[in-house]
Design a protein around this nucleic acid. Sequence first.
RNA 1: GCCGGAUUAGCUCAGAGGUAGAGCAACCGCCUUGUAAGCGGUAGGUCGGGGGUUCAAUUCCCUCAUCCGGCACCA
Length: 636
Amino acid sequence: MVALTLPDGSVRQYEGAVSGEKLAADIGPGLAKAALAIKIDGVMRDLALPIEADAKVAIVTRKDADALELLRHDAAHVMAEAVQELFPKTQVTIGPAIENGYYYDFARSEPFTPDDLVQIENKMREIVDRDEKIFREVWPRDQAIKYFKGIGEDYKAEIIEDLPGSEQITVYTQGKWLDLCRGPHLPSTGKLGKAFKLMKLAGAYWRGDSKNEMLQRIYGTCWADEKQLKDYLIMLEEAEKRDHRRLGKEMDLFHLQEEAQGAVFWHPKGWTVYRMLRAYMRRRLDSAGYVEVNTPMLVDSVLWQKSGHWDKFRQNMFVSESEERPLAIKPMNCPCHVQIYNQGIKSYRDLPLRMAEFGACHRNEPSGALHGLMRVRAFVQDDAHIFCAEDQVKAETKAFIELLRRVYGDLGFTDVKVKFSDRPPVRAGSDETWDKAEAALKDATAAAGLEWELNPGEGAFYGPKLEFVLRDAIGRDWQCGTLQADFVLPERLDAEYVGEDGAKHRPVMLHRAILGSFERFIGILIENYAGKFPLWMAPLQVVVATITSDANSYAEDVARTLTAAGLRVETDLRNEKINYKVREHSLAKVPVMAVVGMKEAENRSVALRRLGGNTQEILALAEATDRLRAECAPPG
RNA sequence: GCCGGAUUAGCUCAGAGGUAGAGCAACCGCCUUGUAAGCGGUAGGUCGGGGGUUCAAUUCCCUCAUCCGGCACCA
C-alpha cells in the first residue's frame, strides 16, 4: 500500500506504485489537465514518475509559484530543440532556468543573428503547438557517452564524463529531439504555453571559464501566463527610464567621454548632489568618532611591494615613473593609512582608531566591465580603516553595521542584501586566526540583528568580509558597503601598538565603506529615486517662475530671499506660458516651483507647487521661506 | 579582455551606391500669458576615425576606437 497525503491533509491509498498523472486524474479531470509536475515530500518530480512509498505530495499547476522554474527550464529545452531543428550543426551545452527566465548555451561556428532569434521563437511556438510528449529515460553511463559522442555532441559527453559516478544519467525525449537532463520536466511541450519571449544574444564561456572557448548564449523570459509576461516587459521599460545613464544625461548631472574612459565629468548639478552626499557622510563619520585624513595619490612602488599589491593587483594599477623610480596611482587607500598610523608610537589607549578618507582611487578595470557610474576606473571611496585590538573587532563591527543601516535608511534604502564571505582556499593567516575573525564578524551581525547569506570561500585572502549589496533599476546587483577584517596588512606594513602589558601587539585593520564609491552610490541613488531626489539633495531645489513679465522684478526678489535662506534657486522669467514652464520644470524633476504673477507680487506671496502634485499652496513669502528652509535641512 | 550589436543635427531616431531627413531642444519674431507643450520663422551634419572597392561611398568591404547587451573580472 502507498499512502499519499495531499496538501489539504486528506490521504489517498493505492495498492501499489502510482504516478502523479494517475493521482491527478483520480482527484479530478480539471486537475489532470492542469497538472505540470508533482512535489513529493517537497521535491519537484515528473508527473509520470511512479511513487512507490508513502509521501506528502502536491500536484503542481501553473498557478503555483514553483511552476515557474519548471516552465522556464522547459522553455530552454524547447528553444534548444528549435535551434537544432533550424541549425542542425549546432551543439547544445547547458540551459538552466534563471531569475525571470532561462538561457541556453550553444556551440556553433556561425554567430546567431537577431533575425535568427525571430525564427527560433517562431519555431518554438510550432513545437508547443505540436504538443510533443516528454519522456524520461535512465541510460547507462557508457552508452550515454557513446551516444552523445556519436551524434557530435561533445559538450554533453564531457558533462556526463564529469558527473559523479553515483549520479543517474537521465535523458529526456520530446518528439524527435532528446537532451541529457536531470529534470524534472512537463508532461508535454504543449504545457509550456505561449508566455515566453527571446530577449538577447550574448557570448558566454564554456563552464564560465575565460580560458575556455566562447559559446553563444540565448536568453529568454518565460512566465505562467500572458499577463505576467506583459507585466514583466512593462517593468523592464519602466526600469529603463530610470537608468542612471539616461537620467544623468537628461538631468545634466554628468557625462563620460572616450578621452577619459571610465572617469566621470561631473556637471554642476551632479556635483551638487555629490557635495551634499559627501557633506552628509562627513557629519555621520564625525559623530561616529572617525578622524579624516588625506593621503597621496601617486606612490612609489616600494610601498605597493611591501603591501602585496604589486604582486596581486598590479595588472589593475595605473603605473608611472619619475627619475627611474616606478610609481603607481593608488588603487586603494589602506597602505597609506597604515603610514599615518605608523607615525609615532601607538598605545592600546589610542585604539580603536577610525581613520577615514574620501580617497580618489584608480583601477584599470577591463574595458568590458565599465558601466556608467556603476563601474568606473576613477572613483572616490568613502573609505575608512579601523585599527583595533582583536577583542574590539566585534564591537566595532556592530557599531559599523548600525552606522551603515542609519546611512542607508537616511538615503532611502531599507531592503539591503548582505553576504558573508568566509575563508577562501588560498589565504594568509592561521586557521585559528580565521576562526576568531569569522566568529567575531558573525557575533557582531547577530548582535546587530543582521541577516546574511553565505558566500562560501569568497573572503579576501587576508580576512572574512561582509558585503552590502544594492540592486539597480534594471535588476543588477552592485556591492556598495563592505567590511573586511584584515590580519595581514598590519603585519606586512609593521603596524603595532603597545598593550596594557607593555609589550608590542599587532592591531587588526577593519577595511570598511558604506557607500562604496560615491560614483556607484550616486548611480544607485539616481535610479532608486528615479531622478526625484529628496529636497536636501536636489541639485536645484526651487524654480521661481513668472506668469507675466510684469512680475519679473518681484520674482528676482523672491529668488534672492530664498537664496539668502540657503536654498538652491533659479528663476524662469522666459516669455512662455505658465503651463509650459510647469511642464518643463516637472520633467526636469525640480522639487518645488514658486509661481508668481501680479496677484503674488501685489501681496508679497508665492504659489508653491510640488513635484508630482497638482495643487498649489499660496503662502506669504516669509512663511514659504521658513518652511522651505526647514524642509531642506539634510539628515545627520 | 572575449562574443554579438550599435555609432547619422545638442537629444531621440528614420534613411538610401548618385546634392542628407523628422520630432524635441536652440535662435529670432508675434503673443503678456494663472499651474504638464500658444503661433510663425531661422539656423544646425567631415553620416565615429583610418584604409580599400567604385566614375561616384555616409551607404559595400577591411581595420581601429568608443558605447550598448552578456560572459569573464571586481583584490
